[in-house]
Design a protein around this nucleic acid. Structure first.
Ligand SMILES: [Zn+2]
Ligand SMILES: [Zn+2]
Ligand SMILES: [Zn+2]
Ligand SMILES: [Zn+2]
Lengths: 161, 161
DNA sequence: TTGAGTGTGTTATATTGTAACAGTCACAGA
DNA sequence: TCTGTGACTGTTACAATATAACACACTCAA
């Protein structure tokens, strides 16, 4: 498992096990089923910090679930999104693991166009400002998608060197 | 042309002619061609303040351009986006006219799930906060997509009444 | 006149996402 | 024990969104 490097020094296996542990715990608490398929999909999404496409997931899961079809994946994705365990990256039609599924949840996604990694930040102040702006417009917020494209610090420093 | 009502009192024909006028002017200034097809697509997008789907545009333009195919539409859309005359609404896979194509450009989109209308706000303070947040993360911004889903003031007041 | 650039026509195909119905399993209530 | 209900999955078919690739026409300038 040497694919992903998120921070300069970074044991990604820890990211994965933390995410899966949290997911298992939350689903137990909530009385919802993290079935084998859902667990596998979540694990596959967490195989890196990149956003993963649904049909790539389909290819990846086929060795494990020969019967897998698009619906298999999309159902699992729907579940994981409902439970706040992953996010859909609207501007990529792709999916990324959520790092803070246990906390309250206003994600801001920083998407690097070099390495494709997606960093999630809670960005409380951004969200507060956003809420104010919406309120001024008399707008009642249901959900937010805040996606920033650019180049992450890691990739920026690589270019310089 | 009685389809759209954006503000409570609102002469939408003015929105359209202003948008088209600005577009013609900007394209002239920039030495790029607002060809008939591109002009028609822009006008169709401006037929309301709702976001329009590419294939709906295709149906709409067919009476005017019998030869129209998906590529016809997507090429026009690419051009219009490049020129900042429309925005792609990532979370809807749809397109909406830009109200401020002449000004600096940090759009925040308020998308009403009742009436489907999209209101664009410049939201300078939101964008500043966002920029700060990105900077903290060492992230160099190329583009932003800030899309808020909810219920607009108009629809909210309708529900009450 | 010729070559480059731009825009369009055309065909085919890739990618992304849903609908609809059937089968299985577990568990609760009669 | 029966039986029905809900949750999950299997399966087929298809809808919706988007792009690739190549051909043709037109303009403008070297
Ligand atoms: Zn990691
Ligand atoms: Zn990067
Ligand atoms: Zn209007
Ligand atoms: Zn509305």
């Amino acid at each position: 498992m040497t694919t992903a490097t998120f921070a300069p020094e970074h044991d990604h296996q820890q990211c994965v096990s933390k995410a899966l542990g949290t997911a298992e715990h939350l689903c137990l608490l909530r009385g919802v089923q993290l079935t084998p398929i859902r667990h596998q999909v979540l694990e596959l999404i967490w195989s890196s910090h990149k956003a993963v496409k649904a049909y790539d997931l389909l290819d990846l899961i086929k060795p494990l679930q020969q019967a897998a079809k698009p619906a298999t994946i999309y159902r699992a994705l729907d579940f994981l999104i409902e439970q706040g365990l992953i996010h859909r990256v609207e501007s990529l039609n792709a999916f990324v693991g959520c790092r803070c599924s246990d906390q309250q949840h206003e994600q801001l996604l920083l998407i690097c166009s070099q390495c494709q990694e997606v960093e999630e930040r809670s960005a409380a102040d951004v969200m507060k400002t956003l809420a104010q702006e919406a309120e001024q417009a008399g707008f009642v917020i249901h959900s937010k998608a805040v996606e920033i494209h650019g180049v992450c610090g890691k990739c920026a420093s690589k270019v310089q060197s």
